[in-house]
Design a protein around this nucleic acid. Structure first.
Lengths: 168, 168
DNA sequence: TTGACTTAGTTAGTTAGCTAACTATAATGA
DNA sequence: TCATTATAGTTAGCTAACTAACTAAGTCAA
């Protein structure tokens, strides 16, 4: 997401602000800091998942299926919830099916539709990954108390509300 | 980064916490919220840059060059600062050179080395993109006052310190 | 009822990132 | 000195995302 490692120093930002007076230095700092930490968290998550032979895309599919009462859904619904295109979901499901973590079954009513079911092996994989993920995440966030978590939540909501201004 | 659109509700998290007692619900919420907002910011940044025919990777290269006193650097140094591999940097520079935004010149001392220089067209491109980027970012962060920005900075530092615990 | 549209899923081809391996050059130490 | 090792840059091939286009099936209205 944010590859950049060499974040601008205050001096650099001031130099740029001289040429570009639109610059709001503390806004830029906050923005880059947020992207930097989020990217590092995402990389850490990837590292955790890869120990179990998973990547984020495929892992989220398993979780979405586990959330379902019948442990099953359709590629379209999964794509929507996972935030990827249906074409991408086809590829994710191909991989999961190959590894036996989900099964494709013909939908009974709509013959265009396919039912995707979490297999026992898929559930077992989650039972292996989730405790590891949750333990690590707990440790990672241990330094931030409840008050800090609430503050973060409020700040993120404020920034989120501003994103439409970014897009205009 | 975080594709997932359908973030878990409190009920879902509680259901998962029953099966996986390691779960720290407010930690998970904070983590996902942070990744979600950061991803949306990154997407908004991409949209802004694409109006000017740029993507993040190539844009950061231009900025890194503009930071240099002589407006020039080497592929290796740029790769390190941009946080990508040298192979990736080769590809980014190919594209930028094709568009005339940077120039490859032979380094005088070390004959293995190549000097990359920001061209006048490259500087002009930045002079077009940066005011737009800075204006949008200012508007996006307008809802967060200085106190909030300081709080965010502290919170991010706390979380950042915890990332090593995620990796163990 | 049939022609136009919509929806579900897949396939094909593109992209930007990656790793691994390569060439050329430089640096180092027995 | 010269054999080894390290560094700079590139190339080739992989991956997971994307868009666009396709087939098949369902829906709807004139």
């Amino acid at each position: 997401m944010l590859q950049l490692r060499d974040l601008p120093s205050r001096e650099t930002l001031e130099k740029f602000a001289t040429r570009y007076p639109q610059a709001d230095i503390s806004a830029i700092s906050a923005f880059l800091h947020l992207l930097r930490v989020a990217t590092d968290l995402s990389v850490a998550l990837d590292a955790c998942l890869s120990r179990h032979g998973l990547l984020q895309g495929r892992w989220w599919v398993l979780i979405l299926l586990m959330r379902e009462e019948a442990l099953s859904s359709t590629p379209s619904a999964l794509a929507e919830k996972a935030g990827v295109t249906r074409a991408t979901m086809t590829g994710l499901l191909d991989g999961l099916e190959r590894d036996g973590l989900v099964a494709r079954e013909l939908g009974p009513q709509d013959r265009r539709s396919v039912s995707i079911r979490l297999t026992a092996a898929g559930q077992q994989k989650l039972d292996e990954v989730m405790p590891d993920y949750y333990s690590r995440l707990r440790a990672c966030m241990a330094g931030l108390d409840e008050r800090g978590r609430e503050q973060l939540d409020e700040i993120l909501n404020l920034i989120n509300g501003g994103i439409r201004a970014f897009d205009e």
